[in-house]
């Protein structure tokens, strides 16, 4: 049961882990859903062509980095509103993946199955990547100069700038890190969990990851723990179905969302997020 929860929560956890870094730098990445979706598609398509799931993972990460860089260009370089750009990115990714998918694989809805990554026990390698990445991210954010600078650029960008860092560069770097993890998340979804692709297959997991960052109060460890809990709800849903428990199916699907909303309401104002989250930085010359 625990392994299953871990397995099903891995996409959300990976995406949320990257999103913590991005949000700490002041980047609210509403386009996360779209980045994950594009990665899931790229991962599937590359694996289908080459029959090598590792190349699929690579393609997924590259696609995610590309779209994240695109998004970062608009939100950081051009200092456009992050919610606006993120919304556009989501639309773009939805249209792009749907069109490419239908153009390449037809609309018949026939199931495409692709080889998955070799499993280690019950888990696949990307789960271990997640487990290794958590302490790494915690350490980087807490102990390194770069981590401190990133946090500063999300709290009080002028301070980071006057300490000799470039806020634009810091935010760009963290946006790419967020993109990297979103790529792994998408790859895990299509290559490891589904072994296939379906239109709009992320089904809100990117948004859920953003909610998890708030839920986990911008602390990488807590964020992943929260994702695990919510992912557990998803595993529970399959388990309950298998055991024939008669709960409305829809309630189970909605459970992760209800759970996160309730927790956010209960936690209330508590610890706030980074002070400059979502605020485009314009250098005062």
């Amino acid at each position: 049961m625990f392994w299953q929860a871990l397995l099903y929560s891995t996409p959300v956890s990976l995406a949320a882990l990257g999103e913590v870094v991005g949000q700490r730098a002041g980047q609210l990445n509403i386009g996360l859903e779209g980045v994950m979706l594009s990665a899931a598609y790229a991962g599937m398509a590359a694996t289908y062509r080459t029959h090598n799931p590792w190349i699929g993972v690579l393609a997924a990460v590259l696609a995610a980095l590309l779209i994240s860089a695109f998004q970062a260009f608009f939100t950081i370089k051009m200092a456009l509103d992050q919610v606006v750009v993120g919304t556009a990115i989501n639309l773009f990714a939805m249209g792009l993946t749907n069109s490419l998918f239908r153009a390449q694989f037809g609309t018949s809805g026939k199931l495409i199955s692709i080889p998955g990554l070799p499993k280690i026990g019950e888990l696949d390698p990307l789960v271990f990547v997640l487990l290794l990445a958590v302490p790494l991210v915690i350490w980087t954010m807490r102990k390194t100069r770069w981590g401190l600078a990133v946090r500063a650029s999300g709290e009080y960008p002028d301070a980071a700038e006057s300490a000799g860092f470039s806020v634009v560069r810091l935010r760009f770097q963290s946006a790419l890190i967020a993109g990297f993890f979103a790529g792994l998340a998408g790859a895990h979804l299509s290559i490891c969990l589904a072994g296939s692709f379906a239109e709009n297959m992320t089904a809100g997991r990117g948004f859920l990851a953003i909610a998890m960052v708030t839920f986990g109060r911008w602390k990488p460890g807590w964020v992943v723990a929260a994702s695990l809990l919510v992912g557990g709800a998803e595993a529970l849903q399959y388990r309950a179905q298998a055991m024939g428990i008669h709960l409305p199916f829809q309630l189970l699907v909605a459970l992760p969302y209800i759970l996160s909303l309730v927790v956010l309401i209960v936690l209330g104002k508590g610890v706030g997020g980074p002070a400059s989250l979502g605020v485009p930085y314009r250098r005062n010359l």
Partner: peptide
Amino acid sequence: LQIKRGVPLVISTILLNFIALQFLDWACA
């Protein structure tokens, strides 16, 4: 929720979208 409990509107409305969608599913069935 945003004004009284500090839950960011961007996040609560997204979550409510998904909840509403499942609720619709359930109600119609």
